[in-house]
Design a protein around this nucleic acid. Structure first.
Lengths: 242, 242
DNA sequence: CGACCCCTTGACATGCATCAAAGGGAGTGG
DNA sequence: CCACTCCCTTTGATGCATGTCAAGGGGTCG
């Protein structure tokens, strides 16, 4: 009934830390709208933090007094329900920020999908910056607006699309965000279960949808964590969303 | 496959304008977080606009240069897809605002569910106010943050809950928003199709879920547009969400 | 080499979508 | 004032997409 049920992953930090070279040094490639001047100004106040795969960065309900920038790795933003359900509202890639919105208490958890390096800043520094610099204000609002837009996109996907369409949309969005245009090879840092919990499906359905797209030569799947988007036209046709 | 498909409603404005007295004069009851000082300062610049039931207020893709406050009536915020699908990301009630986020072009459409009265302001006035008043800045950010939170809630609902659970969550949320606590009688301004497109279900499934809850004496349904929440405990138990 | 974890595929079950039709309230015209 | 029509809601019958259960495969780590 409720997808993903209680088969969540193993304990944080316990799992093998696969190395994803391809994830390491990409900084601010797609960061045009994701940090820019804002974070440059914060840089002096930042401290580095490291988390291993599946480790929790912060949990739902904690105080929200820090802002994070992902330097390397991938983070998932998720909500856990009492009966074991989980929903991943977004993945966060290098160059992007976490915790900008005006929460006093975290409305969701953040967990490392693979080993992650973060820059972390006290929110007070952001507040000070916001007060003193009008450009930062504008940027802050447009970053929060962007995540609102992303949220509405996912709502549409969850409300209106079939499994195949969801997977197609997901792959396209991932391509947009991780390598803005260089070739059709895509690296999936997250596992099938993460994808399933993000798309509101089960892991089996995600597998089947991927296999189906593969059989139709719309994508190629050299390994569980690599996808090649062979037929972008067909993918876009599936992801008819707005 | 895709819910709601192409059975959207009739032409804007053509439908009968049912009167919903109960919706008229409720102003700023739940507005604690929804307008407050911000709009009071904007008041002098506002003009009144009226829309009849099912009329379009603005469409997706239009320029986004105005901010609206709902004075009376109910507005739905929705996205239409090319193949006739529709998703309603939110309903907007009296006292609440539309268009605060930093969009340059509308990412969604706004339509009157029932006859609506709006106060409308040029965004430039808001910008000016934001520059001059730090309190307004804080409030603006927390309003946008609030809608981000709402969006994540709906994502969870769409990703993890069954039809019954969705309807239960919806009714509870509606109760929260429309009458903060006075009795368990609930007025549904929107029709079943609107509810379906909001919850990612079909109209028939919504009907059946409501009937089921009625048969179990969890709610009572005096008419299609009135619901009495008889067993709040059971409803909360269904809406296990976070 | 063995254990574990994740991915994949198959067989089956079911919740919800789809198709179809009847009931009820509101506005309209006779 | 009544009959008609339209639209929305409700309920029933059926089918399908996806969830559930189960088992095997392949990589990685110890």
């Amino acid at each position: 009934m409720s997808p993903s049920a209680a088969r969540a992953q193993a304990e944080p930090g316990r799992r093998a830390e696969r190395k994803f070279e391809f994830m390491e040094p990409i900084e601010d490639v797609h960061g045009a709208a994701s940090s820019g001047a804002l974070l440059r100004s914060l840089q002096p106040f930042g401290t580095r933090e490291h988390f291993s795969g599946n480790e929790t960065i912060f949990s739902e309900g904690e105080d929200s007094d820090r802002v994070f920038k992902v330097i390397a790795g991938v983070v998932r933003i998720c909500k856990h329900s009492l009966n074991g359900g989980r929903h991943i509202s977004d993945f966060v890639f290098p160059g992007e920020l976490i915790g900008l919105a005006a929460y006093t208490t975290q409305p969701f958890a953040a967990e490392a999908v693979i080993p992650v390096t973060l820059a972390s800043f006290g929110k007070c520094h952001l507040d000070r910056l916001v007060e003193s610099d009008a450009r930062v204000r504008t940027q802050l609002l447009s970053l929060v607006t962007a995540s609102l837009l992303t949220a509405h996109r996912l709502q549409f996907l969850l409300g209106c699309q079939s499994a195949r369409e969801r997977v197609a949309s997901f792959l396209l969005r991932l391509a947009e965000r991780t390598h803005a245009g260089r070739g059709a090879r895509l690296d999936l840092a997250m596992g099938r279960l993460d994808i399933a919990d993000h798309l509101g499906l089960t892991i089996e359905t995600v597998c089947r949808a991927i296999s189906a797209l593969k059989d139709e030569h719309i994508i190629a799947v050299p390994g569980p964590h690599q996808v090649i988007l062979s037929d972008l036209g067909a993918l876009h046709a599936l992801a008819i969303a707005a």
